[in-house]
């Protein structure tokens, strides 16, 4: 059980939580994740560790409401407990290259860049974050991100804030020499189509790129193999070998397809929890 200490809405569908988890906070490194289960009969879902505070013993996670569990999560309030929280899982991110490191965050993905980019900057790298979303109100954590990196670049699809266009278009400009300059390494976290597009953008320029894959998971310890992904024609378990992989070697098509395995059931479950809510509202 882990108590929720702070809850802050970032967008209508994205919420930031600070939870009491001293053991995990102590062990966590950038790039790792946790698995949560929030009710008896609930699913186990992976969530990226956005940040941690070893002294305070707290963990920051950002949850975007996309399915049954994340929606139920959104209803948890300060003072309530998360039934099960386990981690830190996965391999810590290692950035072998020094120099100009660009983190690309799409949607809630930007949250995961918090602790990562802070560490890189502390190590002496020049850090740029490209934070992208559909529109201004969906851009998250701008203030926090400004503090921890050298350059924060905003992108919106509709031009309501920052660069008008996709994160990949802005990235391409930088690769072509636009300030703050061509990256030595790129780390992308966000929806699969965005990460795939980033991989394509950096491939031609041969800029080493890592993406954070988020396949379906159950245990997160290498026990089920449900999280398998193909990287460089080899099968890997994202929960223990990942979540970060060389973007230019990932079989995105397979990863996207495998993530759609339960779409039908997910809709069923979502409809049902919606119905339950309505039913409760009626009496």
């Amino acid at each position: 059980m882990a108590k929720i200490l702070e809850k802050r809405p970032l967008t209508p569908v994205t919420k930031l939580y600070k939870v009491d988890a001293p053991l995990i906070a102590k062990a966590a490194k950038p790039g790792q994740f946790v698995i949560v289960r929030i009710r008896e009969g609930g699913e186990r879902i992976p969530l990226t560790i956005a940040d941690y505070d070893r002294n305070a013993g707290t963990l920051t996670i950002v949850v975007q409401e996309v399915g049954t569990t994340t929606m139920q999560f959104g209803e948890l309030e300060v003072g309530e407990e998360i039934l099960d929280l386990v981690g830190p899982l996965g391999m810590p991110l290692e950035i072998p290259v020094e120099g100009h490191i660009v983190g690309v965050g799409g949607g809630f993905g930007a949250a995961a860049l918090l602790c990562l980019m802070r560490e890189l900057r502390a190590r002496g790298d020049t850090t740029t974050i490209i934070n992208g979303a559909r529109e201004k109100d969906l851009l998250i954590l701008n203030e926090e991100l400004t503090e921890i990196c050298d350059n924060l670049e905003l992108c919106t699809d509709d031009g309501s804030a920052g660069f008008h266009g996709f994160v990949t278009e802005r990235l391409a400009q930088m690769i072509d020499g636009d300030a703050p300059g061509c990256p030595d390494m790129v780390v992308a976290i966000g929806p699969m189509p965005m990460m795939r597009a980033v991989a394509e953008t950096t491939a031609a320029a041969k800029i080493p790129t890592l993406v954070s894959l988020d396949p379906l998971m159950i245990d997160g310890t290498g026990m089920c193999g449900g999280c398998r992904v193909t990287v460089n024609n080899e099968v890997k378990f994202a929960c223990v070998d990942g979540p970060f992989f060389d973007a230019h070697l990932v079989d995105f098509e397979e990863a996207v397809r495998r993530n759609k395995m339960y779409v039908k059931q997910e809709h069923e479950a979502k409809d049902r929890s919606h119905c339950l809510k309505l039913a409760v509202g009626q009496d």
Binding site: G41, I218, C224, G225
Partner: peptide, 28 residues
């Protein structure tokens, strides 16, 4: 890696630990 291929561990865990036989009352 096609959709619909499982390890026995995954298949059994979904049912035994996560109660998939009781879906959608259970979420897995």
């Amino acid at each position: 890696n096609l959709n619909g291929v499982y390890s026995a561990n995954e298949f059994l865990t979904r049912v035994n630990l996560m109660r998939a036989n009781d879906f959608p009352n259970a979420d897995t």
